[in-house]
Design a protein around this nucleic acid. Structure first.
Lengths: 294, 294
DNA sequence: ATACTATATGCTCAATTAGAGCATAATAGA
DNA sequence: TCTATTATGCTCTAATTGAGCATATAGTAT
């Protein structure tokens, strides 16, 4: 057998997230159909620089710190170069630039469990999945685990596993070109929704044990702002007093002498992130379903 | 400015780990100088298949489940195709095939804190790092955090951060071609030791909250075997009774009716992994420095 | 047989953390 | 002044964690 080293094109894809009025949003192109992306060119001296180039070119946004997500290697079509798609994630607190910011939960409505709004989607999903599983117990068990059905608990950061299961079951539009959208949730071109799911999984896992949330809230914030940012990202509600205790005990924040103004009720103190104490940061736990779904 | 899509070669690199007599080992080539690797070829229908091909070709080993680690994109040298290096990690309990298995800790002697053997390396590292940092407080603080100096705590899974810091400080042989090895620890060709460090970081993080250890121990094992596997991988000693409590409370294992034989003292019961109960697996905590370094 | 050594395993106790809820404080607006 | 509303402090209980002691069961030396 003859061996040929494959020539490749490398494509760089960015998932840039911000929080706008408590809504987690992602920077998209073409009316929300795809993520900023472009091929690696000879002028780019590194993968990250290529990524920055394309994002700036396509959206005007200058990326800060980025984190690599995953590399997808699609099978090459005949007479085509193979495509290697390298995806990255970035955070910003300045989402006010031009460009198409879309809520995460347009693409994954079942992931927002803060209110009961997702109940209808989840019910549909449950039914369709049960239909797909039939009486194959391995499939049933996977559905239960991944979607927290049948007494199993919901795992925030299994966003990707859930999306892939829905794909496998043919319930997302990208899975089959002839299929109608079987469940709500806006599709994207190519595998960009999968890349987005990878990013949400990673970010949800990350905010739990690193101070990543602080890159998404303003310099000065109330503890409720911080909590609501965590809730928006994780898609779950938390217990207010316990969250406060958690954050304060770890000395992750320091008081300022300023207060929030122009709101109802007692004004809340503004806090600032203490970068020094952020080594052993633990922002999870302290969960309680108040209005969300357990 | 003219844009040219870069032609790339994609190289696939594997880090295969096993446990041999309580020693965590990695499969290497050329007398431990590099990892199994090879270019993506047109015959390979996916990245993973390419990886499998090369590992089998070079070492005779057939990979099971693999997990992607990271994609490195080196700057292209003049008149050369750009190289994208995609690395993967895999586990096996059958390390007895031919090929060069090397202990992890040959490459990272400072990572094995189970005994006092690493104290001399660590002292050397501390001195050299202090010399490198001088009185730049940002450097000093990074050294303290990453290497757990000056009262900071040691973080098992910061293997990569530690290696990269040593590189930056010019203390590993790969950092400068003219440098003598400044601290002990076997070097590798290219960036393969960095890839290995990435794998250790990932695996140490992974065994804490997934049942990955069970892929490295035999079907039937004593609780001490399991504990020693965790200790070998994490490089730290654990409290025996508490480890046992942790594992049993989560019902991660089930008793067999068999016992270990041919050993001193009371024979230990053999257990088997319960895959059913492995969703919320938590094998960390329960740490106590017995002989290791706190 | 008996004592000794070595390991496994069971159990206790105190300290800390997590989950939940109540009580009080401080503001704006009626 | 009274009420609605949010912030913040505090308590209480249940789990979990860290640590160590005690007992069980084997082989081996006396």
């Amino acid at each position: 057998m003859d061996h040929h080293i494959a020539t490749c094109r490398a494509e760089l894809v960015a998932v840039l997230t911000t929080l706008q009025n408590g809504v987690p949003e992602v920077l998209t192109l073409q009316d929300g159909q795809c993520l900023p992306a472009g091929p690696l060119e000879t002028e780019h001296t590194s993968l990250q620089r290529g990524l920055r180039h394309w994002v700036e070119q396509q959206t005007g946004f200058r990326l800060g710190h980025v984190e690599q997500l995953y590399t997808f290697g699609d099978a090459a079509l005949a007479h085509e170069d193979r495509l290697v798609r390298i995806s990255y994630m970035a955070l910003t607190r300045d989402g006010q630039t031009q460009g198409g910011w879309q809520s995460w939960y347009n693409y994954f409505p079942w992931e927002d469990r803060r209110t009961n709004g997702c109940l209808t989607v989840l019910k549909t999903i449950e039914d369709r999945l049960k239909g797909w599983a039939g009486d194959q117990t391995d499939r049933l068990e996977r559905c239960n685990q991944v979607f927290g059905l049948n007494g199993e608990s919901w795992n925030d950061d299994a966003v990707l596993e859930r999306y892939e299961l829905l794909w496998e079951a043919g319930l997302v539009q990208e899975a089959a070109s002839d299929a109608q959208p079987r469940i709500s949730g806006q599709p994207m071109l190519w595998d960009h929704r999968r890349i987005l799911a990878t990013a949400l999984s990673r970010l949800r896992a990350k905010i739990r044990y690193t101070p990543a949330v602080f890159e998404l809230v303003p310099e000065e914030f109330t503890l409720l702002h911080l909590q609501q940012a965590m809730e928006a990202l994780s898609g779950r509600l938390m217990h207010k007093q316990n969250f406060r205790r958690l954050v304060q005990n770890q000395q992750l924040v320091e008081e300022t002498d300023r207060y929030e103004s122009g709101v109802h009720g007692r004004p809340a103190r503004l806090y600032r992130f203490r970068r020094e104490n952020s080594e052993n940061c633990y922002l999870s736990g302290a969960k309680l379903p108040l209005g969300g779904i357990s």
